[in-house]
Amino acid sequence: MAVLEIILVIFLVFSALMAVYFDEELISIIFLSIFSLVLTALYLLHKAADVALAEAVIGAGLNTAIFMSAISQIRHGDSD
């Protein structure tokens, strides 16, 4: 149990770091989605099933879709 938790926490911090580190938005969003999935697993470990379900559908599912649809229409560089 403890080992699994430590591995997950390392993944969590790593994906958060990567989400902040990369300048490309797409990669950041993918890492944010991974972050949410790892967080879901951690919530399950901490015996919070409802919150885990909410984090899975909202954090990993819906937020990713909304972020993607946002960056799909953002133009870069050409200011008019």
Partner: peptide, 25 residues
């Protein structure tokens, strides 16, 4: 299922609603 079994199993209106929205997406 998630919506209607909110009082029996994990889940509820919010989570199930997001799943329904996911179909649309």
């Amino acid at each position: 299922y998630v919506i209607t079994h909110g009082h029996l199993t994990p889940g509820g209106g919010f989570q199930g609603g997001v799943i329904l929205a996911a179909i649309s997406i």
